[in-house]
Design a binder for these strands. Structure first.
Lengths: 183, 183
DNA sequence: GCGCCATTGGACCGATTGGTCTATTGCTTG
DNA sequence: CAAGCAATAGACCAATCGGTCCAATGGCGC
């Protein structure tokens, strides 16, 4: 079995950089310098190069957010309370770094016209998130789980875009305030 | 006074391409080929090159959306009705092309870490939109115009991201359905 | 018709891009 | 110790990047 640290470091570094500057805005040389690895390592672990790495990084970050959703909703006693807690959780994660990073899926989305695989990846990860939220909505007895899931996902995406633009978590704070009035 | 057609064509082409592939994803050669203009024209009209063109394109598209907001809300008799109509209007605009384009501001946002001016531009255009929505909310007698403006802007951004990812206006349709239940 | 100036056309530049290829390293297993 | 393979290291490549520069063009005022 291969030592996961190198592959992992590539994925982690790629995810961070892509979320800051977007897929096309990050060069391999910069990425590899940041990861402290030579080009050979990249093409050994990801024979299809940048695109394959981006796909892996997106799925990895997607799974991370899904774990965050599960862990947060697990503590909630109602869907609205869970939604509020998720909003806070993402706000905290996003502000824990010097640069407010974009949604990991969004960061590769603009490269989708050039790299068809990334389009599919983005759709799958988004779909997975919505399904995950829907699952919790159902569990917590929401009347319309699918509507609730779309609505929350949509609001979170919107707040994330605005937070990224403003480089501040104010949008998440505002969204949290709005969600708080609902229950 | 300079003939506006060349400068205009550059702005228009830039806006279209950036909204498809993002700022970093579009090369000058591709852009100029699409616009049917030589490099000399670009650097004559925009001495600071790509970044200045992107700024102009974003402000131009920003003003376009603001006109759309004004025109749509002008026909509404309540804020919620206006919000619903705006959602429909953007959905229509977005689906009128073969490729569903991203929000024009979003398309340059990922280049902000590299080009500080674009960060400022993005913030100003977003702020301008929110102010515009707030103005109509106030006019139509909404109790909390600023909250209403943020909430709608946030939802529209979220739906736009999802629509861009899915290359379909389904997200706008869904958002419209949600807004319809509110009044 | 002449001169002027806004604008176009495109050759050219160094830097950087993503990707390929091969030599070398170093651990693991027999 | 030796063989073999996983993994690293980085030189090298053609293509493209954004940007500079200057000659050619063309319409308008004199």
């Amino acid at each position: 079995m291969s030592d996961p640290t190198s592959r992992d470091k590539l994925i982690r570094t790629a995810s961070n950089l892509f979320r800051q500057k977007g897929y096309s805005g990050v060069g391999l040389s910069e990425l590899l310098k940041e990861a402290g690895l030579p080009k050979g390592s990249l093409y050994y672990h990801f024979p299809n190069g940048k695109q394959e790495l981006a796909e892996a990084a997106t799925r990895w970050a997607g799974a991370w957010l899904e774990r965050l959703l599960d862990a947060t909703f697990a503590q909630a006693e109602s869907f609205n309370e869970g939604a509020l807690m998720v909003c806070d959780a993402i706000a905290t994660e996003v502000t824990s770094q010097t640069h407010v990073p974009a949604c990991p899926v969004l960061s590769i989305l603009q490269a989708a016209p050039l790299e068809p695989r990334l389009q599919i990846t983005a759709q799958e990860v988004y779909g997975s998130w919505t399904k995950c939220i829907e699952k919790h909505a159902k569990r917590l007895g929401h009347a319309r789980p699918d509507d609730a899931a779309f609505s929350l996902h949509c609001q979170l995406q919107g707040a994330w875009v605005i937070a990224y633009a403003q480089q501040s978590n104010a949008a998440f704070t505002q969204l949290a305030r709005e969600l708080r009035t609902k229950f």
